[in-house]
Write a protein that binds this DNA or RNA. Structure first.
Length: 459
RNA sequence: GCCCCCAUCGUCUAGCGGUCAGGACACCACUCUUUCAAGGUGGGGACAGGGGUUCGACUCCCCUUGGGGGCACCA
């Protein structure tokens, strides 16, 4: 199965060497990231090496910054690379020499100044680690250029040359490369090398079933980072796209558990559709499992940008606000927004559910808020605590024979513009007495916007 | 057009000849609760179609249909 190599001690299993080989296009596509993840998981599982090769033969697109984007993306996901990064462009002289050798051996021929590879007749098949046996007829594939007339090598040729050079044992890549594989196998043979194990992993598609691309919206790993997705959640989600552990475990907070569970045998053949909703659910799971201290660190920059520094708001208050949102936010961005609203009334935007609640009974809404304002204004600052507030508000509800919801829900809406929040008494305490009363009074004159909530549910 | 691959709830998937076709997300109820969220319980929801093989097919084979990918002096 494997090429025998002089440097290796006979009779031992060769060390697994895999690689991720992106071209530096300026962003790391989630499909690429998933391929990288599978390679990494496989290498870690087998104690092999995970290598990175930058396919930078397209000079125009290759810049230092573009390479950096890939490195940042991999690092963010926690995929550490084992050896020096290989730049494909550095091997051109070697690629040329190899092409010349095939030319001299009659395995390739010159045409219009380019060197064209002579495809052998007959079946070219391999045992794919994911798809099992795949077979092509060499005769169906036309001879193809390996060295252009300007003597630059082409993709299918350099891949083979470099994978040989890097002693890659397993080539794991998107299944869009399946039809390149017979060409590459033919080159391995022409060069006198045994092909590696191929493992083609299914692609990731957009909601319309087509290859995930920019018109689907966010396709770069960096986009999700900006959206407030945690790297662990992203890694977890990507792992589950086209692979499953065989049992019902879905949450792999510790990457080591993922490594442990991973196997090529359980990689799917069918392409998977990227489901943002599930990613966000997973992310919410990760957020609610993240200690408040870490969470605060994650949203600190965002809060600072809004002027909500520890100095301005109070370190303790800020942290409590973060902690209390952790189980209600699905992204760190959403979490930061929720926190910010509590300290900056100008950020309040009534959502559809809030309008719906108001529209259902506008008078009841106002009456409740008036009563709440009246009652709360009598509370002395020292009693403005979650416990004190709860007692007062329960008392109020009882005195007015209102349900607790009829009292607490309007408070949520008045203070945040939303129907979802921490317990209302905790919210009041966090926002503070003066500010809470101010927000309640301005909510008294709100007119519900019913334009969007006619008939069927909105959203 | 030619070549290759794929096909279970809306989505991610389990299933590897005999299952009430299981789980997760989403959705809907109910429950818990300060009519939030989270949690808990329950519900609706799938084997693309047709032929075979077999005592018996989601599972194996063939065809059809549908979907995807590839056919460059791009990568």
């Amino acid at each position: 199965m494997y090429a025998a190599r002089a440097s290796r001690t006979p009779m031992t299993t060769p060390t697994v060497r895999v690689r991720f080989a992106p071209s530096p296009t300026g962003y790391l596509h989630v499909g690429g990231a998933r391929t990288a993840l599978f390679n990494w998981l496989y290498a870690r599982k087998l104690g092999g090496a995970f290598l990175l090769r930058i396919e930078d033969t397209d000079r125009a697109r290759s810049s230092e910054e573009n390479v950096q984007v890939i490195l940042d993306g991999l690092a963010w996901l926690g995929l550490d690379v084992d050896e020096e990064i290989v730049f494909q462009g550095a091997g051109i002289a070697r690629h040329q020499a190899l092409a010349d050798r095939l030319l001299a051996e009659g395995k390739a021929y010159e045409e219009d100044g380019a060197i064209r590879f002579r495809m052998p007749e007959g079946e070219i098949a391999w045992n794919d680690a994911v798809y099992q046996r795949i077979s092509f007829q060499g005769g169906d594939i036309k001879d193809w250029v390996i060295l252009r007339s300007d003597r630059t090598p082409t993709y299918n040729f350099t891949v083979v040359a470099d994978d040989i050079e890097m002693r890659i044992t397993h080539v794991m890549r998107g299944d869009d490369h399946i039809s390149n594989t017979p060409k590459q196998i033919a080159v391995y043979r022409a060069l006198g090398h045994e092909p590696p194990v191929f493992a083609h992993v299914p692609m990731i598609h957009g909601p319309d079933g087509k290859k995930l691309s920019k018109r689907h919206g966010a396709t770069a790993v960096g986009d999700y980072r900006v959206k407030g997705i945690l790297p662990g959640a992203m890694r977890n989600f990507l792992a589950l796209l086209g692979w499953n552990p065989g049992d019902e475990q879905e949450l792999f907070v510790d990457a080591r558990d993922l490594v442990e569970a991973f196997s090529l045998e359980r990689v799917q053949k069918k392409s998977a559709i990227f489901d943002l909703t599930k990613l966000e659910w997973l992310n919410g799971q990760y957020i609610s499992r993240t200690p408040p201290e870490e969470l605060y660190a994650l949203v600190k920059t965002d809060l600072d940008d809004r002027g909500l520094t520890a100095a301005a708001v109070g370190r303790d208050r800020l942290r409590r606000a973060v902690a209390v949102q952790s189980e209600r936010a699905r992204t760190t961005l959403e979490l930061a927004e929720r926190v910010a609203i509590r300290f900056d009334a100008s950020l309040i935007r009534r959502d559809a559910k809030a309008d719906k609640l108001m529209a259902k009974d506008p008078e009841g809404f106002r009456t409740a808020l008036r009563a709440v304002a009246e009652r709360l204004s009598t509370i002395a600052e020292p009693d403005w605590t979650p416990e004190g507030l709860e007692t007062e508000l329960r008392g109020l509800a009882e005195a007015r024979s209102l349900s607790l919801g009829a009292v607490f829900q309007p408070i949520r809406v008045a203070l945040t513009g939303q129907t979802v929040s921490e317990p209302a008494n905790v919210l009041l305490e966090l926002v503070g007495k003066d500010e809470s009363l101010r927000r309640i009074r301005s909510a008294l004159v709100w007119e519900p916007d019913v334009s969007g909530i006619r008939g069927e549910p909105t959203e």
